[in-house]
């Protein structure tokens, strides 16, 4: 994994995922390890994403490294018309590792080809966000004790939600069963269902939430966003169907945990927060350990 960019979840093997999760668990036990002393990590956020940036910067700081970068391209040379290539080549001179968020799809792959240091994709448009996927895997493994043979319900926007697509691909190594719970307009795309068919992985599709989560080990919630609907009336019809409420959790399995990539809007009612099955805030903390592990592995320090 040393010097290997992480652009897409498909770049790493199952063994490499598991190795990252193992190291992440080490950082969970012992989060402050100054192994990045004297190293510089560039965080280039061509579009703002405060949550992801803070998580990465927290991870670098706990490793004793320094952060340079920008949080919004309007204040950088990019706004003066500099190409991505030139920005990446320049920043490669100043840093040991580049963490990049960019609104255009494929930008991270291109940056990894141009850069002389490894690149971690922190989101390229609607395409990939692999560190989110790895922290989801870590959260699942930690709460369930295993990644194997789990029943995972994915809820909400399954059409455009990149996190559910990445998670589906990554979990496909571990013999899961899926429930896809979404409005017709936001159903899981055909190409992912074909992928599962080919691998012989069982999935069920539903449009109704409450009745179909009882046997789940993991409920993965996503936002249903208004801007995804061509017809605003369609949004009005479905927006309240996919809200998880505390009383729906009666009769769900004891080991079940609720995940959400955050930020949430209203899709998880606040009365769920105090339920011990709510796991979305610890999940965000796991993101720091997972990113510590990813950076340490890529820099060859673990």
């Amino acid at each position: 994994m040393k010097n290997k960019s992480l652009v897409s979840i498909a770049d790493y093997t199952k063994e490499e995922y598991l190795e990252i999760l193992r190291v992440a668990a080490e950082f969970e036990k012992n989060p402050v390890q100054k192994i990045l002393e004297g190293r510089v990590v560039a965080t280039l956020f061509f579009e703002p994403s405060t949550r992801t940036r803070l998580s990465f910067e927290s991870a670098v700081n706990r490793l004793g490294g320094r952060v340079i970068g920008f949080t919004d391209s309007s204040s950088s040379s990019v706004s003066k018309g500099e190409t991505l290539k030139d920005t990446i080549l320049t920043v490669s001179n100043y840093s040991d590792l580049i963490v990049m968020r960019h609104p255009l799809e494929g930008s991270a792959r291109y940056a990894s080809e141009v850069a002389t240091v490894p690149v971690i994709n922190a989101g390229d448009g609607a395409n990939q966000h692999p560190t989110q996927c790895l922290l989801d895997l870590f959260s699942i493994q930690k709460t369930q004790g295993t990644l194997e043979n789990l029943k995972i319900s994915m809820v909400g926007d399954l059409k455009y939600g990149r996190t559910v697509h990445s998670l589906l691909m990554a979990m496909s190594y571990f013999n899961p069963t899926f429930n896809f719970i979404a409005p017709d307009e936001l159903k899981m795309p055909e190409e992912y269902k074909l992928f599962l068919d080919k691998k012989g992985i069982v999935y069920h599709e539903f449009t109704e939430l409450a009745e179909n989560i009882k046997d789940s080990d993991i409920i993965y919630m996503t936002r249903v966003q208004r801007e995804r609907f061509a017809d605003p009336l369609e949004y009005e019809k479905v927006k309240n169907v996919y809200i998880l409420k505390n009383k729906m959790l009666e009769g769900t399995k004891d080991n079940m945990k609720i995940l959400h990539p955050l930020p949430r809007v209203n899709e998880i009612s606040t009365d769920v927060d105090s339920n011990s099955k709510a796991y979305y805030f610890p999940q965000a903390l796991n993101g720091v350990y997972t990113r510590q592990a990813i950076m340490a592995k890529i820099l060859g320090l673990k």
Binding site: S8, T83, L84, K85, L104, E105, G106, S107, R109, Y110, D124, G125, N127, Q128
Partner: peptide
């Protein structure tokens, strides 16, 4: 959006060719 040589892997599905972008994966 930037001056890049495109790169695709070719998918041949039932004689109909489609291209998967090396960059955006679409």
């Amino acid at each position: 959006n930037e001056n890049i040589v495109t790169r695709f892997s070719v998918l041949d599905r039932n004689g109909s060719i489609s291209l998967k972008c090396n960059y955006c994966e679409k």
